[in-house]
């Protein structure tokens, strides 16, 4: 399953020199590191293509009510398995005669919503735990990092399944489950980075000037952590979309009649022979979405980490 390798990819390249050096160098070299980063990002053609596709997918989900030709829930049992371009169904009809195109558009809303919401949970939890552990060190660090290690002991899919099986399926629970099982890598990266950052002169200076811990974290440490957070966020959207489809496949997914790409794909498995299109479209959309976000994530990492210069 791909949830793990992609999240493994959130780790910095293994032989990385501490990111702080990189950031300092960036600061020293260019007036606008963000513009530099953007230039590097768009030089990466696959990342740029990924970004365009991602934006199109997001737009289609937002505009689903306007774009969908029919009610995605309207069952028309006589139209089951209408092939594409027949009977007024652009992409055909599904196993109970619902318009596949409309369903795909609405399903995209749910799948992407799960993706973004789970990412938000991941980023929130991962950032807070990473920064707090790294900044305070000592006992809080030990406790939080042991917790992180404990969760890392289990392959993500185990955690996903156990939680999904025991909590029951709903949009909220699936989002939380995915989010809460994928923050550990980010927390680790941020913790290590913060550990190094807090010894930097400007942080020490801020502390000497009597800045509160909270201010130090929010004003100094957080901005310097934006690069890994952005990378992790993008890759996590991809992961969450994929994870949602696995949960569906293993029988713990979003409830009907609501559609997500994952449960559409899963429901369509039996009809490969008679109605291949209903399995093909959601599968292609999941792959496209996941690959696009992954490319964007890769591009971001290259762009924000100047060490990986070409």
């Amino acid at each position: 399953m791909a949830t793990k390798p992609a999240s493994a990819a959130t780790a910095p390249p293994p032989a990385a020199i501490p990111a702080t050096d990189a950031l300092l160098r960036t600061d020293a070299r260019a007036a606008s590191p963000w513009r530099m980063a953007a230039r590097r990002f768009f030089a990466h053609r696959l990342a740029a293509a990924g970004l365009v596709i991602s934006i199109l997918l997001i737009l289609s989900a937002i505009l689903a009510p306007a774009l969908a030709p029919r009610d995605p829930l309207q069952i028309s049992i006589l139209d089951k398995f209408q092939p594409p371009l027949t009977g007024g169904f652009l992409l055909g009809a599904d196993e109970v005669g619902r318009d596949l195109l409309s369903r795909l558009l609405y399903a995209g809303r749910i799948s992407l919503l799960v993706g973004f919401a789970a990412m938000a949970v991941t980023v929130l939890v991962g950032t807070v735990i990473g920064l707090v552990a790294g900044f305070y060190g000592g006992r809080p660090d030990a406790i939080l990092m042991r917790l992180t290690d404990a969760l890392l002991c289990f392959p993500t899919v185990f955690l996903l399944l156990v939680l999904a099986a025991f909590v029951g399926a709903s949009l909220l629970s699936i989002t939380l489950i995915i989010g809460l099982t994928s923050w550990m890598e980010l927390a680790r990266i941020l913790r290590n980075q913060t550990l190094a950052l807090r010894e930097q002169d400007y942080v020490q200076a801020g502390r000497a000037l009597g800045a509160s811990n909270r201010r130090l974290i929010v004003r100094h440490l957080l901005p310097n952590s934006l690069a890994p957070i952005m990378v992790a966020a993008t890759l996590n959207i991809a992961n969450a979309v994929l994870a949602e489809s696995y949960i569906s496949y293993l029988g713990y997914g979003i409830q009907p009649p609501a559609a997500s790409w994952g449960n559409m794909l899963n429901n369509a498995q039996s009809y490969f022979q008679n109605a291949p299109w209903i399995a093909l479209f959601p599968g292609v959309l999941i792959t496209l979405t996941v690959a696009s976000f992954n490319f964007v994530g890769d591009g971001l990492r290259d762009a924000l980490d100047p060490r990986a210069r070409r």
Partner: peptide
């Protein structure tokens, strides 16, 4: 029981 696809179809039709 989740995952019984044909039954889920019947449920959805009944719902309608």
């Amino acid at each position: 029981t989740a995952g019984n696809k044909v039954r889920e179809q019947a449920q959805q039709y009944l719902q309608q």
